[in-house]
Amino acid sequence: MANTPGAKKAVRKIERRTAVNRARRSRVRTFLRRFDEAVQAGDAGAAKSAFIEAQSELMRAVSKGVVHKNTGSRKVSRLAAQLKKLSAA
């Protein structure tokens, strides 16, 4: 357990940061789920708008350090491929 005042403060900071990061990650997952639902429904227009929002949210998470840069890029790439496949069909 933390004994020094500095260590106790670090624990408090980590708790606050963890809560913020958890909320950001949850927000990203929500946007990804909306995109998936639009793709499952076969609605290309809704999928396109959901893709734009999901891409924006993923890149924001990358910039905040919640998601690694390569992970964010990979996810966006896969979403784009799904959207392209849906639009071609």
Rank of each mutant, 00 (worst) to 15 (best):
R29P: 01
A38K: 05
R60V: 03
K9V: 13
T4W: 02
N21L: 03
F31N: 02
R24G: 03
M1P: 13
S73H: 02
R27F: 10
T30C: 01
R27N: 06
A47Y: 04
R78E: 13
T18Y: 02
L86V: 04
R16K: 08
R12E: 15
A44C: 01
A44W: 01
R22A: 14
R17E: 07
A7F: 00
R33Y: 04
K85I: 07
Q40M: 11
R74I: 06
G45R: 00
L32E: 10
S87M: 11
G72F: 06
V66N: 14
G65Q: 10
A61H: 05
A46I: 02
V67A: 11
A89K: 14
R27A: 14
G42F: 01
T71A: 11
R33S: 03
S63N: 15
R78K: 15
V20W: 06
V11L: 14
E53S: 13
A50E: 10
R16G: 00
I14P: 03
L83R: 02
A41Y: 00
D36M: 08
A88C: 00
R33C: 00
A54G: 05
V20G: 01
F35N: 05
N70H: 11
S63P: 04
K13G: 04
V11A: 11
G6W: 06
R27P: 01
A81N: 15
A88K: 00
S63L: 09
